[in-house]
Write a protein that binds this DNA or RNA. Structure first.
Length: 572
RNA sequence: CGGGGCGUAGCGCAGUCUGGUAGCGCACCUGCUUCGGGAGCAGGGGGUCGGAGGUUCAAAUCCUCUCGCCCCGACCA
């Protein structure tokens, strides 16, 4: 490709609305342009990386035995009504009507459609296992799209769905996908971790997320410093193997705490640490229950764990008027003593005695409070947010480390949730109808490219690894008006094309400074500079974008050298 | 959904408080010079100031409504 005839609109300045580095660089390098909030054009240069990502995914999926198909973006509402998600999915599901006033939605994921395919075309266990995948544009009307391709509303996703006759088969399908995902992200040169995750709105029983490690990641992850355990912070289990129920030693005492509402206020006022306080949260659930939740003063509630414990869709902190009604006190003085609603306490609270709690009255707290003696706990359970330093639930002595990650892939074991709801059965070897056991597996294509940029850039621009780079080699023709330079660069360009190397020839009539700055910005892994200075010696200059390493190579050796470097997939 | 901020040329911004008929840098076009890390000089094109309504002799500027975009929050007890 000739730069002079290509559409590669680079920006000298960072667009004002781009916050994270991948978004800024994708804009500046002319890879994407925004059309609306969370909706982007893939410009020619960016599309090349996207397509490479897709191809890596496609190859690994095929190798793992999955079969590519393509389902529609516009989904009939009736399929979603059948699964129950038409009501349940919420506002992220973009719904609309066709001219006959029939319900439709833009597919945010395709369990319904793929289940419909399989129930209509697969009748026997002999046709299983089956894994169908597609690489397709999805639409989710996100509350807050942000960070360019990182969280768009419209985005390209690879989604795969496995169908098995039984759990054991589903486990095998899951394991294959898990391995395929490892291969995919390894091929992209990404630093990532597979972590245990909450299965969220898609539903199901078990799942892993593939997290690319990056400061800008939206997800918190913890991993054990000793064993293999790693999990999304939403899911990370906490288990106290030596925790004993604490015994009360102090008497319960009511004390005045005028205007001391927050944990910090109360701790300071009583001259104790937050660890000696137990905070009482009033929580409202999707089933319209109100419960109290007890946590050590410095801990945070994990509302996903709580929702799972209570078997509800969501469990959120109650509105102020509900708190006032339940506690008969102003907000800030809730406590477990005398409450009539169920009280759920974090496991950690079991080991606490003689603590401070709110008094359910204005300006009153209790000290010397004890569960069992002063109030009853409906149930102790793991309901708090994990933090660095917490004990590992899987091994003895391991401690959590924490970091940020970008979720680029997610594998779920779904079970029979959708096949039951949509009556997708096959006959088993005894001739009986049996629900299919499903799994689903997604990769955010654009997000993975963005994540790769988060991990591979410097202050001058992109440094995408060879497998994802839009081109493999940039030939930088300095001063096209110099006949010798032009002819040498043109010849090199033609030769590289003929051996199948993806080459961009910068034949623009621009000053060297502009060409070098653009070269660094767009970050093609290998740059060959053809200029009068080195050409006199019969050489061109070879520079690796990622390392900055630079060397002169004879004109008649450069094609071989580049072929070799590209084949190795490495910057030298 | 709540809070904050911003919409003026392709990009980055000034002008808005204090109303007087739109400007700077980059980019773009023409010419000359220049040519190994974002050149110089000269000339030039491009904006219904997000939209609608209102106040006024006069509105980018003041008022009302509206649309779009960005950020933060949605864990206060």
């Amino acid at each position: 490709m000739r730069y002079s005839q290509y559409l590669l609109p680079t920006l000298k300045e960072t667009p004002a609305d781009a916050e994270v580095i991948s978004h800024q660089l994708m804009m500046r390098a002319g890879m994407i342009r925004k059309v609306a909030a969370g909706v982007y054009n893939y410009m020619p240069f960016g599309l090349r990386s996207i397509r490479k990502m897709e191809q890596i995914i496609r190859e690994e999926m095929n190798k793992a035995g999955a079969i590519e198909c393509l389902m529609p973006m516009a989904n009939p509402g009736e399929l979603w009504q059948e699964s129950g998600r038409w009501e349940k999915y919420g506002k992220e599901l973009l719904r609309f009507k066709d001219r006959k006033n029939a319900d439709f939605c833009m597919g945010p994921t395709h369990e319904e459609v793929v289940t419909d395919i399989v129930r209509n075309t697969v009748n026997s266990y002999r046709q299983l296992p089956l894994n169908l995948y597609q690489i397709q544009t999805k639409f989710r009307d996100e509350i807050r799209p942000r960070f360019g391709l990182m969280r768009g509303r419209e985005f390209i996703m690879k989604d795969a769905y496995s169908f098995d006759i039984d759990d054991a088969g589903a486990d095998k399908s899951y394991a294959k996908m898990y391995q395929a995902y490892r291969n995919i992200f390894n091929r992209c040169g990404l630093k990532f971790r597979a972590v245990e995750a909450d299965s969220g709105a898609i539903g199901g029983s078990f799942s892993h997320e593939f997290m690319v490690l990056a400061e800008s990641g939206e997800d918190g992850i913890v991993s054990c410093d000793t064993c293999e355990y790693a999990a999304n912070i939403e899911k990370a289990e906490l288990y106290y193997r030596d925790m004993e129920t604490a015994t009360a030693t102090a008497p319960l005492q009511k004390i005045d705490t005028p205007d001391q509402r927050t944990i910090e206020d109360v701790a300071d006022f009583l001259n104790v640490t937050a660890q000696q306080l137990v905070k009482t949260l009033i929580v409202q659930t999707s089933k319209d229950e109100v419960v109290a939740v007890l946590l050590r003063g410095d801990r945070e509630l994990n509302s996903i764990k709580l929702a799972n414990l209570l078997d509800v869709d969501w469990a959120l902190l109650a509105e102020d008027d509900v708190i006032r009604q339940v506690t008969a006190a102003p907000v800030g003085f809730a406590g477990p003593i005398g409450l009539t609603i169920p009280v759920y306490a974090d496991s950690e609270v079991r080991g606490m005695a003689d603590f401070v709690v709110g008094g359910n009255a204005a300006d009153v707290h209790y000290i010397g409070a004890n569960h069992g003696r002063d109030f009853a706990v409906t149930r102790f359970a793991d309901i708090r947010q994990a933090v660095a330093g917490d004990p590992c639930p899987r091994c003895d002595g391991g401690k959590f480390e924490s970091w940020r990650g970008i979720e680029v892939g997610h594998v779920f074991k779904l079970g029979t949730k959708y096949s039951d709801a949509m009556n997708a059965t096959v006959l088993n070897d005894k001739g009986q109808a049996q629900s299919l056991v499903m799994g689903c597996y997604g990769i955010g294509v654009g997000r993975t490219v963005a994540a790769a940029i988060e991990q591979n850039h410097d202050e001058n621009g992109l440094m995408l690894p060879m497998p994802l780079a839009p081109f493999q080699v940039l030939v930088c023709m300095l001063n096209p008006k110099d006949d010798e330079v032009r002819e040498a660069a043109e010849k090199l360009y033609a030769e590289l094309e003929s051996v199948g190397i993806e080459v961009l020839l910068d034949d623009r009539d621009e000053r060297p400074g502009i060409k070098f700055k653009d070269a660094d910005l767009i970050g093609i892994p290998l740059r060959v500079t053809v200029g009068a200075r080195t050409l006199k010696e019969g050489n061109v200059e070879l520079k690796a974008r990622a390392t900055g390493e630079q060397t002169e190579v004879a004109v008649d050796k450069i094609v071989n050298k580049l072929e070799q470097l590209v084949a190795e997939g490495l910057n030298f």
